[in-house]
């Protein structure tokens, strides 16, 4: 049980997908201008990362390893992720049509989010059991969503702040992202235990 908790804490805070592994930076800068869209994008990405990691784990353990097809891993995982996103889009359209009308356009962008492939590859590299892999993928995506929402909140405040013209827009965003990464480095001591 303690192992699972450590895996989760480490994935959310210590080895954060965005601020420590520098994955998913495109959506980090692109979809964080408003908190509501950041929440929607974060939840959608959390779902896709977790679901695709489960499928990728199964493909790796039951298909690629037994048949020694490890060299096809990246191609296969990309295919699985694209299928998972398509499935998610169809499901959301069926389950919650208003959400699809409001946020549907963001879903295809998740396919090209390197955080999804990155977490799937990390899960396989970790050679963990099934539940540990699922929890790692879920926690990594939770860390992604957490940073997205925090950064969106900061950018909403920045939009109202007096910023020197030279730093207005993306430059002050990048500086804020750097400060946020520094703040998250404060959790790195927890990994030593």
């Amino acid at each position: 049980m303690q192992d699972y908790v450590m895996i989760m804490v480490s994935a959310v805070l210590v080895n954060n997908v965005i601020l420590s592994r520098f994955l998913g930076l495109c959506s980090f800068m692109g979809v964080t201008t408003r908190v509501d869209t950041a929440v929607g994008m974060g939840l959608a990405t959390t779902f896709v990362i977790t679901a695709s990691s489960i499928l990728d784990w199964a493909v790796q353990v039951y298909l690629l390893e037994p048949f020694e097809l490890g060299y096809l891993r990246t191609v296969t995982f990309i295919l699985v992720i694209a299928a998972a996103v398509q499935f998610t889009e169809l499901t959301v359209r069926k389950v919650s049509p208003p959400l699809f009308q409001m946020l549907g356009i963001y879903l295809p962008l998740i396919t090209t989010n390197c955080a999804v492939l990155g977490v799937a590859l990390l899960v396989v590299e970790g050679k963990l059991g099934f539940l540990a892999s699922v929890l790692f993928a879920f926690s990594s995506s939770l860390g992604y969503s957490l940073v997205m929402v925090i950064f969106a909140g900061l950018r909403e405040r920045l939009a109202l702040a007096e910023v020197p013209p030279l730093f207005a827009g993306p430059p002050i965003g990048f500086i804020t992202a750097g400060l946020l990464a520094l703040a998250f480095m404060g959790f790195s001591g927890m990994g030593a235990r």
Binding site: D36, V39, G40, L43, A44, T46, F47, T50, T91, V92, V95, S96, P98, L99, M102, L103, F130, L131, V134, L135, F138
Partner: peptide
């Protein structure tokens, strides 16, 4: 409402899946 809809569509299936797996 947007957040509620997002939670319903994504969080409920995820939590259900994690509970079943655990």
């Amino acid at each position: 409402a947007l957040i509620k809809a997002s939670m319903t569509a994504y969080a409920v299936p995820l939590v259900s899946m994690l509970l079943a797996a655990s």
